[in-house]
Simulated assay, not measured.
Amino acid sequence: MVKPKFKETIPVFFVNNEIHIGEEDGIAGIIEDPNGSIKYLISLIDGENTIEDIIEKVILKYPYITSEDINSALGSLDAENYLEDNAKRPKIMGEYEIERYKANLNYFSLFTSLNDSKFDIQEKIMNTNVALLGVGGLGSQILYHLAGLGFHNINILDFDTLELSNFNRQLLYSEENINELKTELAKKRISKFNPNVNLNMTNKRIECADDVMNHIKDSDFVICVADKPTMHIQDWVNEAVVKLRKPLVSGGVLNTRGRFYSIIPGKTGCVECHKKTLMDSDQSVNEELNNMNQVNFQRNNAAISSNVAMLAGAMVNELLGLVTGISEPRSLGRMIEIDYLTYQTYAISEWEKQDSCPVCQSIYSK
């Protein structure tokens, strides 16, 4: 039996003969209530009464109001995403998880109706296995976000040791651990921050697509923020995720801008499709890539923590959309750029699947 209640994030105010629901611009609503019947109806939407209870009690006090009127009112409130079903309970979460992820649940409730469950969203996250390539400046902040959201299964790959120059943006670590492996330090810190997270660590430099495939094969989703070697890492990761059909979110910091994209193999074009799209529109792109390869170009860091945090948050939100479906990722088959100086985000390129893409053909040749 459905027991509707107003969501924890939706306050209700009674002002004279008006009912104000919500406080967020564009979401809040005002309802005229000259005779008090709506106020009474709302007082019954407390998570204890079923819809049948509410109908019976309202009609008893206001006989001229019909059950159709009440169902219509409840439907309108539900359509505005004001209500949730207090009878819904989690399938695997206990009281500890409900309290730890309380604010998560309040947020996820914003995307549910009476037919949905905020607990299902959190439990989906807890059961999802994510591979994270790189726990440097961007990856260490992404890891914190993943642990806070409740991703309990994370596979990390990195090879680097901690350096003094890392600390302006790598907030996961401490100076006392300089020269130690980042993977081991990340495991220690995250285990204290959220002991529910099962971290599988791999200390390895990526040298080919097979290295990536071996690491991500048991994961459901992949985040790549590894940036070395600059001219090869994206191609290797792309080949691996396409062959294994793993959705990918990838990005990096580029001086005063951050860039990220996401792909779903078989649904969107891949990185190779993106390259072909750019080359078809601008022949100089191929020449530029060849020149960068010839000089063995390696990008140097120019990043501050606050900028890295913006990009990390955007990328994790894109993953959240892919995992839970609460929002459509903006970056699917698109390169999104964040301008750190203006805080604007925009697509700088987008692409479709290319029929002649040699990487995507690995999906259809099976």
Rank of each mutant, 00 (worst) to 15 (best):
5 K>P: 10
8 E>Q: 03
16 N>Q: 15
17 N>F: 09
20 H>A: 06
21 I>H: 02
25 D>L: 04
27 I>L: 05
30 I>E: 00
32 E>L: 07
34 P>Q: 11
34 P>L: 13
40 Y>H: 15
43 S>R: 07
45 I>G: 01
48 E>C: 08
54 I>G: 00
61 K>H: 07
61 K>A: 14
65 I>P: 00
66 T>L: 10
66 T>M: 10
68 E>T: 08
75 G>W: 02
77 L>Q: 04
77 L>C: 02
79 A>V: 00
79 A>Q: 04
80 E>P: 02
87 A>F: 04
95 E>C: 03
96 Y>W: 08
97 E>F: 03
106 N>D: 03
106 N>I: 06
124 K>S: 00
125 I>H: 04
125 I>M: 02
130 V>M: 08
131 A>P: 11
135 V>E: 06
135 V>W: 03
139 G>S: 07
142 I>E: 09
143 L>R: 05
144 Y>D: 08
147 A>Y: 01
148 G>Y: 02
149 L>K: 01
150 G>L: 00
150 G>F: 02
151 F>S: 00
151 F>Y: 05
161 T>N: 12
164 L>S: 11
169 R>V: 15
171 L>C: 12
172 L>H: 08
178 I>F: 09
182 K>F: 01
184 E>N: 07
184 E>R: 02
186 A>E: 06
191 S>I: 11
203 N>F: 00
209 A>C: 10
211 D>S: 07
212 V>R: 04
212 V>F: 07
220 D>S: 09
223 I>A: 10
225 V>Q: 07
230 T>G: 06
230 T>L: 05
232 H>G: 01
232 H>C: 01
234 Q>I: 06
236 W>T: 03
240 A>G: 13
241 V>Y: 11
242 V>S: 13
254 L>E: 14
256 T>A: 12
257 R>T: 10
260 F>Y: 15
262 S>K: 05
263 I>D: 15
269 G>W: 09
270 C>R: 08
271 V>I: 15
277 T>D: 15
279 M>V: 12
282 D>E: 13
283 Q>G: 12
289 L>R: 09
290 N>M: 10
291 N>V: 06
292 M>W: 01
296 N>S: 02
298 Q>A: 10
300 N>L: 10
303 A>I: 15
304 I>S: 09
308 V>D: 14
312 A>E: 09
314 A>T: 10
316 V>G: 08
319 L>C: 09
319 L>T: 05
322 L>I: 08
323 V>Y: 02
330 R>D: 14
330 R>Y: 10
338 I>Y: 07
338 I>F: 11
339 D>T: 12
343 Y>V: 15
348 I>H: 02
350 E>K: 11
350 E>C: 13
351 W>P: 14
353 K>W: 05
355 D>Q: 14
362 S>A: 11
364 Y>N: 15
365 S>C: 13
